[in-house]
């Protein structure tokens, strides 16, 4: 049997001898960043030339990290979110790949990705609304997801929902998807039909509290309901630094 002492020594020396990774780490990150976030592809390094390239890159990174006092800081935190990405959504049991686009409300500091093939985000006074890109017609109940900033507590918002929908019973639950939030569901009393309106509100608390109100109808739960949830999953409160 090998002694524990030998194993400890082996571990210690392995760690010591492979410890000088900082430069390589930075250089590798620079290439990952280029490939994933800036659209250019920096491929495999050429030996010998690589060292010079790496040194230049590090110098550039260091230089870029020194603030240029003549320029205002224009790089908003929002720009750290990619402009467009693919999202997998489960629609009626089928996996679907959807392209979603970054939308960022300048006033309220949040980012959400919107499936712009199907929806559009309308910025309004005090509320942003994500609505179907093509109007559904008068036969259908309202389909929308509204995002609004609030100073109310989850309890107060629950009271507001109870008053707004007296024919529904209100259920409250702490959820982690589509967001870490208080979910408020208005559950219809009695018989339901295909067009029975569905109301689902999410209270998302951060430095600022947001209420997201989803409106759709029973038959659209696995369509619009699932798509609203998928978009809401991408919602992110952004604190400017």
């Amino acid at each position: 049997m090998m002694s524990e002492k030998f194993e400890r020594k082996l571990e210690k020396r392995l760690k010591e001898e492979t410890d000088n990774m900082e430069k390589q780490k930075q250089e590798t990150w620079s290439r990952i960043e280029s490939e994933l976030f800036t659209g250019e592809t920096k491929k495999k390094r050429t030996p010998w030339v690589a060292t010079a390239v790496a040194a230049t890159l590090i110098l550039l990174i260091v230089a870029a990290s020194i603030p240029d006092l003549r320029q205002p800081v224009v790089n908003s935190v929002k720009e750290l979110f990619v402009e467009e990405k693919e999202q997998n959504i489960n629609i009626e049991g089928q996996e679907e790949e959807t392209d979603v686009q970054r939308n960022a409300d300048e006033e309220w500091n949040y980012v959400i990705y919107v499936d712009e093939d199907r929806y559009r985000l309308e910025e309004g006074e005090g509320v942003d609304r994500i609505i179907p890109a093509t109007e559904l017609g008068e036969a259908y109940p309202e389909v929308s997801m509204m995002i609004t900033e609030t100073e109310a507590t989850p309890g107060e918002i629950e009271s507001e929902m109870t008053e707004t929908y007296p024919d529904y019973s209100i259920e409250s639950e702490q959820v982690t998807t589509p967001q870490e939030a208080t979910e408020l569901r208005a559950v219809p009393q009695g018989a339901t039909e295909w067009n029975t309106p569905i109301y689902r509100w999410y209270v998302i608390e951060g430095e600022t509290t947001y209420v997201v109100k989803q409106n759709y109808f029973l038959e659209a739960a696995e369509g619009h309901g699932a798509r609203f949830d998928a978009m809401l999953e991408t919602f992110e409160i952004v604190e400017e630094e």
Partner: peptide, 17 residues
Amino acid sequence: KKGDQRAFKKIYDKYAG
């Protein structure tokens, strides 16, 4: 997962070495 590069960089910093 939502596209936050800062968060991804933190994951990189943790595991890259």
